[in-house]
Design a protein around this nucleic acid. Structure first.
Lengths: 189, 189
DNA sequence: CCTATTTTGGGACATTTGGCCCTTTTTGCG
DNA sequence: CGCAAAAAGGGCCAAATGTCCCAAAATAGG
């Protein structure tokens, strides 16, 4: 069931106790959200970690009426705006559901409680942030050291769902180039 | 003394117990490193978190004989390659001391022990990674949404020490442009 | 199913960027 | 202090990228 998938996704290769798992699963709430629904707005303090049981979503920062995507999430991924959620401060950006999605949510309060009661849960949270940091490092490396064309090829290889499910405009911005440039790259066979 | 500065830097706005502080300070070791010394090589498993008590350092990834800087550290900053240290896996990149520096080091084993004995220390480690993640997010935003010229202006404003202490080549790569382009930007008054 | 709206892809042109190369300046080291 | 090596800065040209624009295609909503 979806709560377990959420838990397993957080657990990764770790083997947390069944007690933790049971507690965790009790706390998770299910939400169905329609396409184009915004679940977090800039300025709000994020009260949830979500698991995208089904669907597609994006985090972006708004700048001069343009959306600058920071992250795309596919099914079975954990969504969390690190700064806003863990520090409980206003978010810089938005999280938007891009197609009808099923979300599993756990609140900050519940997260804190699990952390207090289960040191191993704390570890899982740390790993989550570490993984996100590592992903960011790789993205920065790509943005500073390979061409837009190579970045697009990499995206196609590692996250083709993004290319399938998003507009050219957003993909281009995500890759750090204009729509025109991405079109040219795609036109080259 | 330097051990305390290290501790305070990790503590940030938190108020950890004196007991933790004492334990921590006992574990810290001081190292003096000369210019151009590499304290971590790609492929090695990082065994330390460092505090740069004095000096200047850089993390970079090597690619086709070029150095792609990921991060620069100034005095009083905490240096840690998140993935290699926390997961104890081989590092992707290098950490190089760019000018004679004083480092305070704490080993993985000691870190683990503090984490086990002091839940509050665990929190500090989490905050450290969260902050790094937040910094990475901002950098990605800049790389995808503002011009090289604006990025340079921002760097000058927010981390002028990098501009003062590093070569044009490295700054340019850090900003995601060629040396030629950065020279042109600087030539514009 | 049809219409209004959005998205896409490409042409023309201007601008920016990068590679190559050379000279000058700075730095490191004996 | 002086020499060798490295870094900086800029000229020239080619390649790439971006802006503006429009027509065709795809999509959304009634």
């Amino acid at each position: 069931m979806e709560n377990e998938r959420f838990f397993n996704s957080l657990a990764g290769t770790n083997k947390p106790s069944n007690e933790l798992k049971t507690q965790f699963c009790k706390m998770v709430e299910k939400e169905i959200r329609p396409k184009n629904h915004t679940i977090l707005k800039a300025g709000q303090i994020c009260d949830n970690i979500w698991f995208l049981a089904q669907g597609f979503a994006m985090a972006y920062i708004e700048k001069e009426d343009r959306k600058i995507p920071y992250c795309f999430w596919n099914e079975n991924e954990v969504m969390v705006p690190v700064n806003s959620f863990f520090k409980q401060v206003p978010a810089d950006g938005f999280i938007e559901i891009m197609e009808k999605s099923t979300l599993m949510a756990i609140s900050y309060r519940n997260m804190k409680q699990l952390s207090a009661n289960f040191p191993e849960f704390n570890l899982l949270m740390c790993h989550l942030v570490e993984d996100m940091q590592y992903a960011s490092e790789k993205r920065i490396f790509n943005l500073t050291s390979i061409s837009a064309e190579e970045r697009y090829a990499l995206l196609l290889k590692e996250a083709p769902f993004i290319v399938r499910k998003t507009s050219v405009e957003l993909i281009a911005t995500y890759l750090g180039v204009s729509r025109k440039t991405l079109n040219r790259i795609r036109a080259k066979k």
